[in-house]
Write a protein that binds this DNA or RNA. Sequence first.
DNA 1: CGTACATTTGAGCAGGGTCAATTCTGGTGG
DNA 2: CCACCAGAATTGACCCTGCTCAAATGTACG
Lengths: 250, 250
Amino acid sequence: MSTHAAIAAHANRAVPGYLVSALAMTPNAGLGAGVGAAIQPRNPADPLASLGHAKVFERETTVFTEGDAAGSVFRVMSGMVRLYKMLPDGRRQIIGFLQAGDMMGLAFAAQYLYTAETVTATTIQRIPRLELDALMDAQPAFARKLLSATTSELMAAQDQMVLLGRKTAAEKVATFLLRLSDRKGGGKGDDRTIDLPMGRSDIADHLGLTTETVSRTLTKLKSSRLIRILVGGKLDLLDRDALADLAGGF
Amino acid sequence: MSTHAAIAAHANRAVPGYLVSALAMTPNAGLGAGVGAAIQPRNPADPLASLGHAKVFERETTVFTEGDAAGSVFRVMSGMVRLYKMLPDGRRQIIGFLQAGDMMGLAFAAQYLYTAETVTATTIQRIPRLELDALMDAQPAFARKLLSATTSELMAAQDQMVLLGRKTAAEKVATFLLRLSDRKGGGKGDDRTIDLPMGRSDIADHLGLTTETVSRTLTKLKSSRLIRILVGGKLDLLDRDALADLAGGF
DNA sequence: CGTACATTTGAGCAGGGTCAATTCTGGTGG
DNA sequence: CCACCAGAATTGACCCTGCTCAAATGTACG
């Protein structure tokens, strides 16, 4: 028993530390598949509002890297962030995409367990762990919220396992599009139009596919008149019912 | 927007309820990939010890089904349980395998989000949600433990996403064997021998493979002298280092 | 000891990957 | 305002890993 990169990483879980993963505190969590937890940034009852301070990151910038000492948690205020893990040889699995309200870096470990990078220009609130701890001590209700948000993330992660382990390429892509669409639900404008700020290879690494397969699958959906691909990373869902059928659950 | 089995299930996450998933409260959690949390059954400090009551389930028995009203949480005292989700057409994804100390059924939703079945004869403690709530209110430290356990599960779930999305069949099987081995770490006897009480199709549905591929892969590992397959669902790890290399991280 | 089911093994196939060329897109500078 | 350029996306051709279908062992329990 020696060269256990595998086992070593696994053992992290046993570390009685703090700050383990990402989590979101509102309903719109989920796209992240075990990642983002929205805690309404501007909610009057937002207990995090006064903690830490916000900073703007430009697009394609690293916020923190897997293995870094985990001293803070972060909350996305606007923009989009991707979280991923990499295998030693460079294969990448994107754990999730975070949007406004989602949190990351939350965990009970000394190091961050994945890398966080911005997809678009993003405003991020950085909250020192100590401040978060203090808030949890002071407001038991907040601790409950964190727990609730974390279990929501876990549910999303489980759905993602079904997707990765048992869905076909077409089902994966259809599911992904519907999730994205659900995410930004209530908003303004055409509710059939969704934003795809991330590149094809990001989508591929999130769905366990290659960029080529993602592209081909989108092309097929376009030919079938289920979607329309617009310029500028936007896309119309022309037939949600058909997409939902294709997605096959979740 | 109508036939959204997908979207409906997804929406569950928004339900402000309780009791969402499974979680474990000790280091040996992890095999579950987003599932079991061990809370030392016989630990003197076990705050759950006096709650609910235990029951013995025989092998291959359903404990609860996805969609059932979620009135209780459960803790495995001995034996093994599998948790899974199914797609409408019957494809199955096993979320994780639970062992002694692992909890399940914990969630912030009104229904169970997956099905739990025993693999072997299993003793399970059933704890009404109300009792768990009361405990959380009475012991803030316990609530913290739950949060810690849940984030551990989330970490495990993220590792499982990497496995499902980016690993080859051989890497998946090697990773699985090492995880199983780590799980029951400290125990007695030959630490190279591990128990595989679940069938090949359970392993397959956990790793996103077919039974045939799992079988073939194990045969190859056997031919390469990395493992030895014993009767009675046992198996020897003959070369952990080689397996760890094969597993490629985590 | 026999039967039912699980596992293994075999043969052939296909979904999605790889490698590579072409087209688009968006930003930049003239 | 437009031509140019670099990177992204798309498309094509071919291949391989892992799946399907099927048959042959193994194994456990009554």
